[in-house]
Protein backbone atom coordinates (compact mmCIF):
# COMPACT_ATOMS: atom_id res chain seq x y z
CA UNK A 1 0.00 0.00 0.00
CA UNK A 2 1.41 3.36 -0.99
CA UNK A 3 0.63 6.20 1.36
CA UNK A 4 -0.18 9.51 -0.24
CA UNK A 5 -0.03 13.12 0.84
CA UNK A 6 -3.69 14.10 1.28
CA UNK A 7 -4.79 17.47 -0.11
CA UNK A 8 -4.82 20.34 2.37
CA UNK A 9 -8.42 21.05 3.47
CA UNK A 10 -7.88 24.78 2.72
CA UNK A 11 -5.80 26.99 0.42
CA UNK A 12 -2.20 27.56 1.48
CA UNK A 13 -2.88 31.25 2.08
CA UNK A 14 -6.17 30.67 3.89
CA UNK A 15 -4.79 30.63 7.45
CA UNK A 16 -2.93 33.93 7.19
CA UNK A 17 -2.11 35.99 9.15
CA UNK A 18 -2.04 33.36 11.91
CA UNK A 19 -0.13 30.82 9.82
CA UNK A 20 1.47 32.13 6.64
CA UNK A 21 1.42 30.67 3.16
CA UNK A 22 5.22 30.35 3.38
CA UNK A 23 4.95 28.23 6.52
CA UNK A 24 2.45 25.93 4.81
CA UNK A 25 4.63 25.70 1.68
CA UNK A 26 7.31 24.12 3.87
CA UNK A 27 5.22 22.44 6.53
CA UNK A 28 2.84 20.72 4.14
CA UNK A 29 4.87 20.69 0.92
CA UNK A 30 8.21 19.63 2.43
CA UNK A 31 7.86 18.24 5.96
CA UNK A 32 4.57 16.36 5.58
CA UNK A 33 5.61 15.19 2.11
CA UNK A 34 8.96 13.92 3.46
CA UNK A 35 7.22 11.82 6.10
CA UNK A 36 5.04 10.25 3.40
CA UNK A 37 8.04 9.60 1.13
CA UNK A 38 10.14 8.15 3.96
CA UNK A 39 7.30 5.94 5.19
CA UNK A 40 6.72 4.47 1.72
CA UNK A 41 10.43 3.61 1.45
CA UNK A 42 10.67 2.13 4.94
CA UNK A 43 7.64 -0.19 4.84
CA UNK A 44 8.71 -2.09 1.72
CA UNK A 45 9.17 -5.75 2.59
CA UNK A 46 8.09 -5.32 6.22
CA UNK A 47 4.99 -6.47 8.10
CA UNK A 48 3.72 -2.90 7.79
CA UNK A 49 3.72 -2.87 3.99
CA UNK A 50 -0.10 -2.98 3.88
CA UNK A 51 -0.83 -1.63 7.35
CA UNK A 52 -3.02 1.39 8.05
CA UNK A 53 -1.47 4.43 9.73
CA UNK A 54 -3.46 3.57 12.87
CA UNK A 55 -1.89 0.08 12.97
CA UNK A 56 1.56 1.54 12.38
CA UNK A 57 1.02 3.99 15.25
CA UNK A 58 -0.13 1.19 17.56
CA UNK A 59 2.53 -1.39 16.72
CA UNK A 60 5.57 -0.07 14.83
CA UNK A 61 8.89 1.16 16.24
CA UNK A 62 11.75 3.33 15.01
CA UNK A 63 11.60 4.98 11.60
CA UNK A 64 8.34 3.35 10.53
CA UNK A 65 6.61 4.56 13.68
CA UNK A 66 8.16 8.05 13.46
CA UNK A 67 7.26 8.65 9.83
CA UNK A 68 3.88 6.87 9.93
CA UNK A 69 2.77 8.73 13.04
CA UNK A 70 3.95 12.03 11.59
CA UNK A 71 1.92 11.41 8.40
CA UNK A 72 -1.17 10.86 10.57
CA UNK A 73 -0.39 13.70 12.98
CA UNK A 74 -0.01 16.28 10.23
CA UNK A 75 -3.17 15.26 8.36
CA UNK A 76 -5.01 15.40 11.67
CA UNK A 77 -3.51 18.82 12.49
CA UNK A 78 -4.59 20.31 9.13
CA UNK A 79 -8.13 19.10 9.81
CA UNK A 80 -8.04 20.71 13.25
CA UNK A 81 -7.76 24.11 11.58
CA UNK A 82 -10.02 26.10 9.29
CA UNK A 83 -10.08 29.63 7.92
CA UNK A 84 -13.62 29.74 9.41
CA UNK A 85 -12.39 28.34 12.73
CA UNK A 86 -12.13 29.76 16.21
CA UNK A 87 -14.87 30.31 18.73
CA UNK A 88 -16.03 27.52 21.01
CA UNK A 89 -17.20 23.94 20.68
CA UNK A 90 -20.91 23.15 20.88
CA UNK A 91 -23.12 20.31 22.04
CA UNK A 92 -21.79 17.18 23.70
CA UNK A 93 -18.12 18.16 23.35
CA UNK A 94 -18.77 21.54 24.99
CA UNK A 95 -20.49 19.76 27.89
CA UNK A 96 -17.67 17.25 28.23
CA UNK A 97 -15.07 20.05 28.28
CA UNK A 98 -16.99 21.90 31.00
CA UNK A 99 -17.25 18.69 33.01
CA UNK A 100 -13.55 17.80 32.68
CA UNK A 101 -11.97 21.25 33.04
CA UNK A 102 -14.63 23.41 34.73
CA UNK A 103 -15.07 25.79 31.80
CA UNK A 104 -13.98 26.36 28.23
CA UNK A 105 -11.60 29.12 29.40
CA UNK A 106 -9.98 26.79 31.92
CA UNK A 107 -9.57 24.12 29.22
CA UNK A 108 -8.04 26.61 26.82
CA UNK A 109 -5.56 27.80 29.42
CA UNK A 110 -4.51 24.27 30.32
CA UNK A 111 -4.15 23.17 26.70
CA UNK A 112 -2.11 26.30 25.89
CA UNK A 113 0.13 25.69 28.89
CA UNK A 114 0.72 22.11 27.74
CA UNK A 115 1.56 23.26 24.20
CA UNK A 116 3.93 25.97 25.42
CA UNK A 117 5.79 23.77 27.91
CA UNK A 118 6.22 20.66 25.74
CA UNK A 119 10.02 20.51 25.71
CA UNK A 120 11.60 20.03 22.30
CA UNK A 121 9.56 18.78 19.34
CA UNK A 122 6.09 17.40 19.90
CA UNK A 123 2.34 17.82 20.03
CA UNK A 124 -0.35 18.98 22.46
CA UNK A 125 -3.59 16.97 22.36
CA UNK A 126 -7.13 16.93 23.63
CA UNK A 127 -8.05 13.25 23.85
CA UNK A 128 -10.98 11.06 24.83
CA UNK A 129 -10.22 8.15 27.13
CA UNK A 130 -11.83 4.72 26.81
CA UNK A 131 -14.36 5.66 29.53
CA UNK A 132 -15.39 8.78 27.57
CA UNK A 133 -13.60 11.26 29.84
CA UNK A 134 -11.43 14.03 28.38
CA UNK A 135 -7.77 14.69 29.01
CA UNK A 136 -5.03 17.01 27.78
CA UNK A 137 -1.74 15.38 26.97
CA UNK A 138 1.62 16.13 25.42
CA UNK A 139 3.60 13.77 23.21
CA UNK A 140 7.25 14.07 22.21
CA UNK A 141 8.42 13.98 18.58
CA UNK A 142 6.00 11.74 16.60
CA UNK A 143 4.04 10.49 19.63
CA UNK A 144 0.30 9.91 19.15
CA UNK A 145 -2.42 9.18 21.74
CA UNK A 146 -3.71 6.17 19.74
CA UNK A 147 -0.57 4.37 20.91
CA UNK A 148 -2.02 4.52 24.45
CA UNK A 149 -5.55 3.63 23.43
CA UNK A 150 -6.79 7.22 23.60
CA UNK A 151 -8.82 8.93 20.88
CA UNK A 152 -7.39 12.21 19.59
CA UNK A 153 -9.92 15.05 19.30
CA UNK A 154 -7.72 18.10 18.73
CA UNK A 155 -4.00 18.75 18.30
CA UNK A 156 -1.52 21.58 18.05
CA UNK A 157 1.88 20.94 16.44
CA UNK A 158 4.67 22.46 18.52
CA UNK A 159 7.65 21.33 16.45
CA UNK A 160 9.57 24.54 15.75
CA UNK A 161 8.99 24.08 12.01
CA UNK A 162 5.25 24.69 12.64
CA UNK A 163 5.82 28.28 13.70
CA UNK A 164 9.43 29.39 13.28
CA UNK A 165 8.96 31.33 10.02
CA UNK A 166 6.02 33.29 11.45
CA UNK A 167 6.84 33.52 15.15
CA UNK A 168 10.54 32.62 15.62
CA UNK A 169 11.03 31.67 19.28
CA UNK A 170 7.64 33.07 20.34
CA UNK A 171 5.77 29.76 20.71
CA UNK A 172 3.21 31.25 23.15
CA UNK A 173 2.12 33.75 20.48
CA UNK A 174 1.66 30.92 17.94
CA UNK A 175 -0.42 28.93 20.41
CA UNK A 176 -2.51 32.00 21.25
CA UNK A 177 -3.28 32.52 17.56
CA UNK A 178 -3.97 28.81 17.01
CA UNK A 179 -7.27 29.33 18.85
CA UNK A 180 -8.43 31.62 16.03
CA UNK A 181 -8.16 28.68 13.64
CA UNK A 182 -9.51 25.73 15.61
CA UNK A 183 -12.04 23.73 13.61
CA UNK A 184 -14.42 22.72 16.41
CA UNK A 185 -16.69 20.88 13.96
CA UNK A 186 -13.83 18.41 13.38
CA UNK A 187 -13.20 17.97 17.11
CA UNK A 188 -16.96 17.50 17.74
CA UNK A 189 -17.06 14.82 15.05
CA UNK A 190 -14.06 13.03 16.60
CA UNK A 191 -15.73 13.16 20.02
CA UNK A 192 -18.97 11.73 18.66
CA UNK A 193 -17.15 9.10 16.60
Amino acid sequence: MTHELPPLPFAKNALAPHISEETLEYHYGKHHQAYVTNLNKLIVGTEFENASLEDIIKKAEGGIFNNGAQVFNHTFYWNCMSPDGGGKPEGALAEAIDKAFGSFEAFKEKFSQTAVTTFGSGWAWLVKNADGSLEIMSTGNAGNPLREGKTPLLTCDVWEHAYYIDYRNARPKYVENFWNLVNWKFAEKNFAG
Binding site: Y26, K30, H31, A34, G120, S121, W159, E160, H161, Y164, I165, R168, N169
Partner: peptide, 12 residues
Amino acid sequence: VWEHAYYLKYQN
Protein backbone atom coordinates in the same frame (compact mmCIF):
# COMPACT_ATOMS: atom_id res chain seq x y z
CA VAL B 1 20.09 20.28 15.32
CA TRP B 2 17.03 21.81 16.93
CA GLU B 3 15.12 23.42 14.08
CA HIS B 4 15.65 26.86 15.67
CA ALA B 5 19.37 26.47 14.92
CA TYR B 6 18.86 26.48 11.15
CA TYR B 7 15.25 27.10 10.11
CA LEU B 8 15.52 30.78 9.09
CA LYS B 9 18.24 30.01 6.55
CA TYR B 10 17.84 26.32 5.71
CA GLN B 11 14.18 25.53 6.56
CA ASN B 12 13.67 21.77 6.16
